[in-house]
Computed example of a mutant assay.
Amino acid sequence: MNSIDDVVASIKAHKPQGRPAEMRAAFAALVGPQPAAEDVAIGPAGGLAVGSGPTLLWFHGGGFVFGAPETHVALARAIAAAGVRVVLPRYRLAPEHPWPAMLDDALAAIDAVPGPVMIGGDSAGGQLALCAARRRTVRGVAVLSPNTDRTGASRTRKPLSARDLMNDDAGDAALAREAFGDRPGDDPDVSPWRSDLSGIAALHIEVGTEEVLLGDSLLLAEAAVLAGVPTALHMTPGLFHLAALWPDAVPGAAAQLARLGAFARDAAG
């Protein structure tokens, strides 16, 4: 896509809704054609990789119901431009495979990389990275607009639902029910900002100011700082949820991904 107008038109034309298969097809159409990537054997089901340098495992978003490595290659390439190899592991999706199936797959992917590795993800993939980081030693965690709060503590989910082009509170909650069922909102996997974050070596958070999940990032950043985690939070004015899926078309999106890539490169030591 060549412009923000193209992106907005695609979002309006391909809203993920209906059955899971329909949502997956709509999301793939929404993001549009992706660049080529290398097939890699990692975790239970493999994945895709782009770039060269230290490895950053990046878990794709999509509410744990849709999305795939194939929908996130443009985003991954923009991160990789900072000098890292971005690997997009494939993980099982709900409702066919509810939580913790995707967490088990993420941990298997981390275990497949020798030594500590950087991990990250966008939206639900950022939530997945945060949950995995509590269970494995990693060099750093880089997240883009992560889901972190299902307790109702966030003050932006409902107010920004009418302004966020890609997300709204009701739809986000419906996806969470598919993945987590009746798990309570204060479960540390369901709301990672309430978990013990002290074992994270370093954390970088990117979010837009027009996002339903802006409050999720604010809660996460505060909790991480209070836990003693070196934390950076960057809020880009005007960006909607996952605008970075179109780094060449949405102003400000490429800069988000460049900062995430630089963090991952520097965290590698």
Rank of each mutant, 00 (worst) to 15 (best):
R150F: 15
R155V: 14
L160V: 07
R136N: 05
E222Q: 14
D111M: 01
R90L: 03
E222P: 01
A223S: 12
A142K: 10
P54S: 08
G171Y: 02
F27S: 11
V207F: 06
R136Q: 07
A227M: 08
I42D: 12
A132T: 06
C131E: 13
V207K: 04
E178W: 13
V117D: 08
R90H: 13
F180S: 01
D122Y: 00
L93D: 11
P54V: 07
S195Q: 03
P20H: 06
Q34G: 12
H97C: 05
G67P: 11
W193C: 01
A28K: 13
V141L: 08
K158Q: 14
L214S: 11
D39T: 14
L214C: 11
D111P: 05
A74M: 02
K15F: 12
H72W: 02
P247A: 05
C131Q: 13
G47M: 05
L30P: 02
S191M: 01
M118T: 14
A94I: 01
H204I: 03
G181N: 04
R77P: 07
G215M: 09
Q127A: 15
R85Y: 02
A36F: 00
I205A: 03
A201E: 13
S217R: 01
E210T: 07
D111Q: 09
G252T: 10
R77Q: 15
P16Y: 03
A255W: 09
A112R: 08
R265M: 01
P237I: 07
A76E: 08
V73H: 06
G181H: 05
P54H: 04
G252E: 08
I4V: 15
L203E: 03
G125V: 11
A254E: 15
F263R: 09
T137E: 15
